[in-house]
Design a protein around this nucleic acid. Structure first.
Lengths: 332, 332
DNA sequence: GCTGGCACTCGGTAGGATCGAGTGCCAACG
DNA sequence: CGTTGGCACTCGATCCTACCGAGTGCCAGC
């Protein structure tokens, strides 16, 4: 815990550093609110903050920059989320006219977040076992290939190609659907892999294929992730090397999903630097918020930026977008 | 047209520059195949190539680097596509085990191309009017929202949310589907917007919504684009500013689609620098190949890298992947 | 026409001086 | 005793200069 004055100084350093990306000297802090002492006193306090681990010096006789611990204290105790009027308006407008297909909407949500914060945005959609199956269909595409299409109550459409024996005709597909529908409707999608065997060998051949594709599809692509604004990463960092490694992370959907899940599971809404658990994100901070549909957490929205990000704005944007998105998906 | 020796020198300069990213001096060219003259002669020839516009000097007394015209000549006359054994094997393996859902497969194809070339890869999928409708369905999600799901013969699933009057019941949806199916099956998806009016006002209300969402959906999201390997862009350029502007382009799907379409329409398979028509891509080259399903061009694959890209490899990779992808989609 | 030789150019690197923002410390003050 | 002005000191950033060397253009001779 920091006393009032130290807290004010830390806040001033963090805010200044976020704005300028330059180490902050005692001279720049003296006229910050809550700091009505001389620069010499500020220096003493800053030295104390350094030994306590909140600030660091890039080199002797330079200003201070916040450490992860400093950012953490700032986020926990000093920053209060605030969204400027224009952004709030933008969010409202977005969700007022938001309509249409769920995936499209989640993708558009990443664009909204990118626009609000100028950082890369991530939205993890509802997992495919979140929605109960509303409809199952098998559509023949070619003589040897059919498409299994399942519409879930939350609007997600799951599809899998099903390879068929050469001589499978439409009637068999129809019978297969009739076997699948009662078993699946009202249940999670994954239940399709447990459909009971059929007496008819032709139908059972189809059901066998269905069981296997339902399982395997879920394994490697269980969640739908949407990423946007990767180009903003390159605006946040000087070192091209950093940019490359962060972009590489963002391209790996599975990594992104587990990263967000991990952070949310730890009960955090901000992960700073090493708190992300990923070495390439050492200079990044991740602000996340889960969103709920009918009281249940079904997904996450977040933004990824540099550790020196505008936390008040990012926190507010992520929070309000998560909340509104949940609402929007709840009402359907 | 260049004489044999000039061509050999140009080839040597381009290949060397692609490898090293350093201006190439006459000394590095003398022991290239086809150049059995002294460095003084090479200097004379290089000076000639410069006045002819194939080479440029970053500054006096530096080596030469290729101009766009130089790259163009190299691509047109000197480069022959070649895929190393390992890559060819990789492509074959990919398409042998490729199966499953079309969108997933197109996305995986971008990953394949990125892996082969180490450049950003783009795949434009079949437009939604390329496939004939195989099945139409209206699935009720909530009392006021239904989902229109159309499965096309090429495996693409088009979906639109349809808002309903409060009192629309399942029977009405069923009647609406019965009106839609005969009109649409065997026709392009867009035909759904022309479905004949129904006598039943409740059904007609649904059809009206369907007509409007079919049209509007197609307007802003007609083509499916898949981009991958954006992080490779940051490995290709030194200047973070260049990286940012190229990434920004790649994020705009509509821009990417029209860029590729434009290049293909001009009959090119390579667009170098300003040939792309986009100022931010001045330092980039785009290698594309259309792919055909049943003899009809339905999409494009491509890679985007620096102008000093490995053209032989990129040309070969894009060509073979385009061809194999077309095959794969043709057989279904 | 090709080649070796040569003077010249000019970016890149290294060393050195200077500048200034910022620090730590200390003595003095209320 | 906490606060403050003063001061010596540090060290990255900037600028200048010298120098090196890769590379060039040109020319005379083969």
């Amino acid at each position: 815990m920091l006393d009032e004055r130290k807290a004010s100084i830390l806040r001033a350093v963090v805010e200044e550093y976020i704005k300028t990306a330059q180490p902050v000297g005692s001279g720049h802090v003296v006229d910050a609110p809550g700091v009505s002492v001389s620069s010499a006193t500020v220096r003493n306090e800053m030295a104390a903050l350094e030994t306590e681990g909140f600030l660091a010096q890039p080199h002797t006789s330079a200003g201070r920059i916040p450490t992860e611990k400093g950012y953490r204290y700032f986020v926990d105790a000093l920053a209060q989320p605030s969204l400027d009027r224009g952004s709030a308006q933008q969010v409202r407008a977005f969700f007022d006219r938001a309509h249409g297909e769920i995936e499209q909407m989640l993708a558009d949500t990443t664009r909204l977040l990118t626009g609000l914060t100028d950082y890369a945005a991530v939205v993890v959609g509802p997992p495919n076992d979140a929605g109960k199956v509303r409809s199952v269909q098998l559509v023949s595409l070619t003589p040897r290939v059919a498409l299994l299409v399942a519409v879930l109550a939350n609007g997600v459409v799951e599809k899998r190609t099903v390879e068929l024996a050469e001589d499978t005709d439409e009637a068999v597909l129809l019978r297969a659907v009739n076997a699948l529908s009662p078993a699946a409707i009202g249940e999670p999608f994954a239940v399709l892999s447990l459909v009971a065997p059929s007496h008819d060998p032709a139908v059972e051949a189809v059901l066998g294929r269905v069981r296997s594709v339902v399982g395997q599809g879920g394994a490697d692509e269980g969640d739908h992730v949407f990423v946007n604004g990767a180009s903003r990463i390159s605006a946040s960092f000087e070192a091209v090397e950093t940019v490359r490694s962060v972009l590489t992370i963002l391209e790996q959907q599975l990594v992104v999903v587990s990263l967000l899940r991990d952070v949310v599971d730890r009960g955090l809404n901000v992960a700073i630097g090493s708190e992300t658990g990923m070495q390439p994100l050492a200079d990044c901070a991740l602000v996340v918020a889960p969103y709920t549909v009918d009281g249940e957490r079904v997904g996450t929205v977040g933004v990824l930026g540099p550790t020196r990000m505008n936390y008040p704005q990012a926190l507010a944007a992520v929070a309000v977008v998560g909340q509104r998105l949940g609402h929007r998906l709840s009402e359907g």
